[in-house]
Design a protein around this nucleic acid. Structure first.
Lengths: 338, 338
DNA sequence: CGATTCCATGGAACCGATTACACGGAGAGT
DNA sequence: ACTCTCCGTGTAATCGGTTCCATGGAATCG
């Protein structure tokens, strides 16, 4: 890993390092002659500028940090992907980190990103805004929240309209005649987990659903907790006629249990998932889902962080959710409705 | 984004920068007194070492680059996830990049990683080893290939036994009585795409499958090409009785078409997918798949790059694949077998 | 023709850490 | 008491770029 430095290039081109630097970074005050010679020398030597050295001197690294809660979650994978592509398109690099739905690991990642001196961050946060997150913000680091927010922390964000999503789904179930609707909740350390649960509780009141507290299982946005929730809900002496799950991985868990137990989705049990993932259209019956646009979220977040970095005003965005009705929801099973 | 530097810390602690540096980086030659004072000062000021400056001086960045071909592909998402977790566990940071199945973007990412002076790279490569990849290697950058390799490029790698995977699947189909087996191939710019296609061709010969060239559709490991392939194969005047798809995204595409056309999988058409993804167990019938262990691959790759960095000998690893037989494969539809 | 402007260029300072080297004081050995 | 070691500390060089400032030559203008 011997490196070619700008000094080597300057020497070969027969100019000073200052001139070499100017040519290589596109400074206008350079002669055609030295431009040619420096470019040639750089190409011949295979010169790669050292980004460390460069960003040590400039204050910008031209890199933004992206902190998602789980790359294996297709929703966040999509966000990560769009963010990277949009950033790349505007010449910025991204540093992708994974909080793994753990506040400790979130802190670790934030520390890493600060050390790397990223110009800004796009974060799907969790927790109460204490720990490293608070430090990062008091440091004056430009941050944009994506998908999730933190109460009392004033940071531009692009989120989706969780309440309406759940409300639409609940109304849909109510119209089909459901009264006992199970809910697999997301972690209450996240704004999305909280908002969706509140919306569910509102719906319970609005539509006169059975308020049995055993119908709510507290999950953590991962597959295993969906499995757990489904086991508990289906194991009740009077199981729900419909289940609503608060994210895609937990929906996977519920599906898995239904398949193992041979529960017929759509007829025996109605199921509404969150996030519209390819796979949900392929199971049969296809899943009714609350869809939101991850790609749009990602690209909006990049625009937003660019505006923040350019000191331009930003307005938080709340993207709409749509209920996509497919075969997994139907009238309650008459054998089960009491 | 005003920064607290080590000079500020030293001043507050009443010591020189050298002492401060020594304390903060755990150098043994420090007195208990200055240790306490520097630690206190650093904490009070919220000091964050500038990784740029540090790695400019040391030659190591303590960061490895990870270049996968598509984060949205669950297989690579899993690899990215494990790699990040294993690296983090050993105190190394990761820079995750996405080649998006494009050689140009791969070059862009490699350039970025070199500029960032990562200590080493874990790469799922594509192409013929020209372009930036060649430069990176001649630079002496430690590289480990994961999942894919490049012919004639001698780099330690952890891959899976693609040939056996396809061979097992083909034998399974042959035993069920299939003779017209469609194949949706991966891009021939990747070793996995090539190996799997060759293995399919071998199987055609071995089992006496119909060698009709129209049974092979050249895809690119993305959903859309799976859709395309399925449309073409199912549109043949004499469609295949079974289809084998060379990766999970293309398998999704095939599934989608079957669902749209109302083709009954398992009875009307047998389908074997690649990669064992949660979703494939949930479609009905559950998919017969060629499974390989992405998590193991990721953690092995990290071990391997660590060995390379420590100048220890490494032996390439080839992980086994297993055929997981589920409901999507069955005897050929008698109406279709001529 | 002399004065002024403009521009390409080189020298040197600088970003924020690490570290080689020198130094001074304390403790050990004779 | 004198030397030798050892240890903690400070000064300054260094990593590889960028950029301020001064300079000299050419072009422009009155």
């Amino acid at each position: 890993m011997q490196s070619v430095t700008i000094r080597d290039v300057a020497a070969r081109a027969g100019v000073s390092v200052a001139t070499a630097s100017r040519v290589l970074s596109g400074h206008p005050a350079t002669s055609a002659d030295s431009r040619r010679r420096v470019d040639d020398a750089a190409r011949e030597l295979g010169f790669r500028p050292n980004a460390q050295a460069r960003s040590l001197r400039k204050t910008r690294t031209n890199t933004i940090g992206v902190l998602v809660s789980d790359v294996r979650n297709p929703f966040f994978a999509e966000i990560a992907h769009t963010v990277e592509q949009s950033a790349l398109a505007t010449g910025m690099a991204t540093l992708l980190c994974n909080a793994n739905e753990s506040t400790d690991q979130q802190d670790l990642c934030l520390d890493l990103l600060v050390s790397q001196r990223v110009d800004g961050m796009i974060v799907a946060p969790q927790g109460d805004g204490s720990g490293s997150l608070r430090e990062v913000l008091t440091l004056g680091m430009p941050v944009v929240f994506v998908d999730r927010t933190i109460d009392g922390v004033d940071v531009p964000s692009v989120t989706s309209d969780n309440r309406t999503g759940i409300a639409d789904a609940a109304r849909h179930l109510a119209e089909l005649g459901h009264r006992r609707v199970g809910y697999v909740a997301g972690p209450q350390e996240t704004s999305t987990g909280r908002e969706r649960l509140e919306a569910y509780r509102d719906a319970v009141a609005t539509h006169g659903f059975d308020p049995d507290p055993r119908l709510v299982h507290q999950g953590d946005f991962q597959v295993a907790s969906g499995v757990e929730g489904a086991e508990l809900l289906l194991g009740l002496d009077e199981p729900p006629t419909a289940i609503l799950a608060a994210d895609s991985l937990m929906t996977f868990g519920v599906l898995q249990v239904c398949q193992d137990r041979g529960v017929q989705i759509g007829s025996e049990l109605s199921l509404v998932g969150y996030d519209d993932i390819d796979a949900f259209r392929l199971v049969s019956p296809a899943l009714t889902v609350i869809a939101h646009d991850a790609a749009r979220m990602g690209s909006l977040a990049v625009e937003m962080i660019r505006d923040v970095l350019a000191d331009e005003p930003v307005t938080p965005a709340v993207l709409p959710t749509t209920l996509v009705v497919r075969g997994s929801t139907g009238s309650p099973d008459p054998r089960r409705t009491s």
